[in-house]
Design a protein around this nucleic acid. Sequence first.
DNA 1: ACGATATTGCAACAAAGTTGCAGAACAAAG
DNA 2: CTTTGTTCTGCAACTTTGTTGCAATATCGT
Lengths: 139, 139
Amino acid sequence: MSAVTTEGILRGSRLSVTASRRRILDLFLEKDIALSHQDIEAVTSGSFDRVTVYRTLQTFLEKGLIHTVPSSDNVVRYALCKDACAEGHHHDDHVHFVCDSCGATTCIDEVSIPPIRLPGGYRVRQIGMVVNGTCGRCG
Amino acid sequence: MSAVTTEGILRGSRLSVTASRRRILDLFLEKDIALSHQDIEAVTSGSFDRVTVYRTLQTFLEKGLIHTVPSSDNVVRYALCKDACAEGHHHDDHVHFVCDSCGATTCIDEVSIPPIRLPGGYRVRQIGMVVNGTCGRCG
DNA sequence: ACGATATTGCAACAAAGTTGCAGAACAAAG
DNA sequence: CTTTGTTCTGCAACTTTGTTGCAATATCGT
C-alpha cells in the first residue's frame, strides 16, 4: 500500500489531472478536516472560478473521493474518503466530530458507530453520527 | 401536565400570539415530522411573507420551541422540542430518522443515543444521530 | 504533435437567506 | 373598550449560494 498522495488519488480516479483538482485535493490532504465550498473558496480565493469549485466537488463526490458530512447548520462539508470507499458506494460509518471552539470538522475513523435498535417497522440502511465538543487542540 | 396545544406552547413561550406563529406551530404539531423552511412555504404558500417564516423559525429556535435536525443535504430542518428543552439549552439526544422513500424526517424519542468513547483529547458535549432507511409507513 | 474528449471560465440566471424600515397587530393597563 | 408602548409583519432591496449553457482551453492516448 503506497502513501496517499494527490497525484496517486487523481491517477486512480481516472479523472483528468488539472490544476484545480490537484489544488483542491491537496487542501483536503493537507488540512485533514472537512471543508465546505466556502472554506475552499476562502483559501484559493480567485485562483479558480466559483463554478469550477462546485463542479470539482461534485465530481469528487461521484467518483467516491470525498463524502458529505452531516451537519446541523446549513453548510455542506466534504471530507476525504479513506480506502474503503468506492464509486457510488460509501463506507462512511465513522463518527464525525465538530469542535465548538475551532469549528473544525474531523472524521474519527477509529471509532465506528454503535449498532442501534429502532422500534418495529423501521428498516435501517445507514447511520450517521455527529459529535459536538472540544477537540484535542482546543480542549 | 396538560395536553400539548398550539395555544399552550405559545402562551408558555412568552411570545405574542400571532396568526403566523399559530399556523407554523400548528403545522409542527399536526405533521409531527421535521419541517424545512421550504416545506412550510409550500403548505402556507403565500399566506405569510417569506421573511416572516424565516423570522418565526429563528424566534422559535431561540425560545427553545424547536431544534434543528442534522442532515446530509444542505437543507435545515426543524422539529418540535419535547418537554425537556429549555431556552438556549436543548435536550436533544434522541435519534433522527430520515425515510429514503417518503423523505420524512422524524424524531424517535424512544431511542436514546448510545454513549460513545472517543480517543483521548476529545471532550464530548452533545451527540447527534441520523438514521437513514425506510419508515413503518413505507417499509 | 494531433485529434477526440473532458474541463474550465464566463455570463446569465435561479434560489435561498438577510436587513432596515414604516405600518399594523398585539398586550397590558386604565 | 380605548389608549399606549412594544412587538411583529410585509415590503423592497440586497447579498449569498448554487445552477446551466456555451465557447475556449487544457488534457490524454496514440
